[in-house]
Computed example of a mutant assay.
Amino acid sequence: MPNQENTVRLLPDVAVHAQPHLAGALDWVGMADIQVPVHFDAGDGEVQRSSAKVGAFVNLKRPDKRGIHMSRLYLQVEQALSTQTLTSESLHALLRGFLDSHKDLADRACLSIRFEHLVRRPALRSENSGWRAYPVTIQASLTGDAFLLELGTEVVYSSTCPASAALSRQLIQDQFAKDFDVGKSLDHAAVLAWLGSEQGIIATPHAQRSVACLRVRPAQGAGFDLIGLIDRVEHALGTPVQTAVKREDEQAFALANGSNLMFCEDAARRIQKTLDADDRLNDFHIRVEHQESLHPHDAVAYASKGVVGGYGSTP
């Protein structure tokens, strides 16, 4: 009688049984929202560990095959992402592993990674600082030898409407004409007090929280310079949202808003100009959204580098 402990038990695998009546090739098959830790260097040399959700897919080019080997994708994702720092090279190798483990089934592979990266930001005037969590998306695909990589993030900022500012200034001028007789000499102290009163500043322009959604394709060897990308965009806009805020910081923020009046078109062009000058980016896609305080709808603008066949071909 055989030793039952040494007997290998065969487990059923219904996926190997084809269903001819449902034959057909599939664009993508895989898993979404795989939970795994990732290690990411945002460009400052400090590797940060974050909780990520990952999508892993291959195409199913064989119409006669019922399915792919999903466990193979999962185990490769878990092994690669939880032990290695994210780089272009490591993602390329991971996708190549997807295809090598499905060589009879697939010739295309793709990967998506979503997580948040914490960056400490200083206050505008005070000595304080605080953390900002920036969303990060990484998309990678491999078709034959064609490897494509994309980095995405969002910058949140304040936008003050130029038209509203002009209309507010006109109302303040009208109020000034009412409160100060044109035929009398102006008293400096009285004017100064008037400017500091609610009666004097009777109108203020509307401003709103706004979001710039960025997708960039780094040049070969450029790496994931997330912090550099964010810094350039926030500097171009001039009014990124703040973390720690004392009164002197809030006053500085008000000054920045007044000095950076912008429509959504202005914001998109500011970002476009600064990214277009960056030779570490092969292409980029910008979507700015001004979440209006005047309207129930939002003002939106798109911009890109203008590469033929690149992001600019679709919104």
Rank of each mutant, 00 (worst) to 15 (best):
G223D: 07
Y311T: 07
L171R: 15
V47N: 07
R209G: 10
R280P: 05
G43V: 02
Q4A: 07
V182Y: 10
D33K: 06
R287A: 10
L195D: 05
D231C: 04
R270D: 05
Q175R: 15
L237Y: 04
R209C: 08
M262G: 06
T160L: 15
H188T: 05
L94T: 05
N59A: 01
M1R: 08
P205R: 12
D104F: 09
R232V: 01
L81I: 05
A303Q: 01
V182M: 06
C264Q: 11
A15P: 00
L60E: 03
G30W: 02
V156H: 12
T204D: 10
G43Q: 01
D283G: 00
D279F: 13
T83G: 04
R49K: 14
Q84I: 06
A254D: 11
L214N: 02
R280T: 09
E198A: 14
Q291F: 04
G238N: 05
H290Y: 12
K246R: 14
S210W: 04
L99R: 08
E116A: 11
H92I: 02
L111K: 08
A23W: 05
P2L: 05
P135W: 00
S88K: 12
D104V: 04
A236R: 08
Q173H: 15
V14L: 11
H285C: 11
A189N: 10
R209I: 13
T87Y: 11
A203T: 11
G55K: 00
S141M: 03
G24R: 09
G152R: 02
V300M: 06
D107S: 12
P63Y: 05
A23D: 15
F57L: 01
Q4G: 00
P122Y: 12
A106G: 01
H17Q: 15
R72D: 01
R215D: 01
A267V: 08
P162M: 09
R96G: 15
T137W: 08
L124H: 04
L99M: 08
G228D: 07
K273T: 15
H188G: 10
H285E: 12
L226N: 02
H69C: 08
H290W: 09
D276R: 14
V58P: 00
Y302K: 04
V119S: 01
V182D: 15
I113P: 04
Q173I: 13
D266K: 06
D44Y: 00
A18P: 12
R120P: 04
S126C: 15
D279T: 13
L73E: 03
Y302V: 13
R215I: 14
D283E: 12
Q251C: 14
L75Q: 05
A219I: 06
T153N: 06
S168W: 13
A123V: 10
Q175A: 13
M70C: 06
R169M: 15
L281I: 06
F224V: 13
C110W: 09
T7G: 00
R287Y: 07
D64L: 02
D181L: 11
A277P: 09
E46F: 00
R209D: 07
E265H: 09
D283H: 07
D41G: 09
P20W: 10
E150M: 10
Y302N: 14
D44C: 03
V136Y: 02
S88R: 14
A109E: 07
S210E: 05
S126I: 10
R132K: 12
E265C: 05
V77W: 00
A25S: 08
R49M: 03
Y157L: 03
G309R: 07
